[in-house]
């Protein structure tokens, strides 16, 4: 049994290795990222945007995504497709490569487009949190299936790793201390930050 779990621990670790490298990179990037609250809003540019007559707001949002979205932009969710109190249609487009806010200028056959492209660090951060989305861009969907699998294997790796230690060298004092320190640290922070 222990041999089987050890073998699967090794295979799961090898499969998840690249995801762990990305997760660690995302953690380091977020640590040194500038305060998002201080980031100025990107300036909007007017661009031509023609919409077929009779198009619904839903169809307009999809056209905006196709026309203005960065690569692999997420499908626009329905709850976002509604008019502001002033009657304008403003659609946020999000993807791992950047954020775009599009305001439809219906009478002018144009749109105000504010683009916020992501740096490579922010791209890695976005990819580390990519979730499988229905109708999502195919490449990003493939990646997010991998990260979804990585979550389950990480759960397995953590539990199997502790099990393997406990069934082989449980009396190692420094191993006991490292596990204890890790657990106490998490509990202490959980209480402190809440």
């Amino acid at each position: 049994m222990k041999d089987l779990i050890r073998r699967w621990h090794v295979y799961a670790g090898l499969m998840t290795f690249w995801a762990l490298m990305v997760f660690g990179a995302a953690g380091m990037y977020v640590t040194f990222r500038a305060d998002k609250r201080l980031k100025p809003e990107p300036s909007a540019v007017k661009e031509a945007f023609e919409v077929p007559a009779g198009a619904t707001d839903r169809q307009v949002a999809d056209l905006m995504r196709a026309r203005f979205g960065f690569g692999n932009t997420k499908p626009v969710p329905n709850w976002v497709v509604n008019r502001k109190p002033d009657g304008s249609l403003v659609i946020p487009l999000w993807g791992p490569n950047g954020w775009v806010t599009v305001t439809w200028l219906e009478k002018e056959n144009a749109a105000l487009v504010a683009r916020d492209p992501f740096s490579t660090g922010e791209y890695i951060n976005q990819m580390h949190s990519a979730l499988p989305v229905a109708n999502g861009a195919p490449l990003k969907l493939l990646w997010s299936v991998y990260t979804e699998l990585a979550i389950f294997t990480l759960l397995f790796l953590t539990c199997s790793g502790v099990y393997l230690w406990f069934t082989s060298r449980p009396k190692l004092w420094w191993a006991q201390w490292s596990l204890g320190l890790g657990v106490v640290t998490m509990v202490a922070f959980f209480i402190w930050v809440r």
């Binding site: 953590t158 790793g161 502790v162 190692l172 420094w174 490292s178």
Partner: peptide, 10 residues
Amino acid sequence: LFFGLLGSAF
């Protein structure tokens, strides 16, 4: 083993 146990809770 050391890093694995230290980081396991996190």
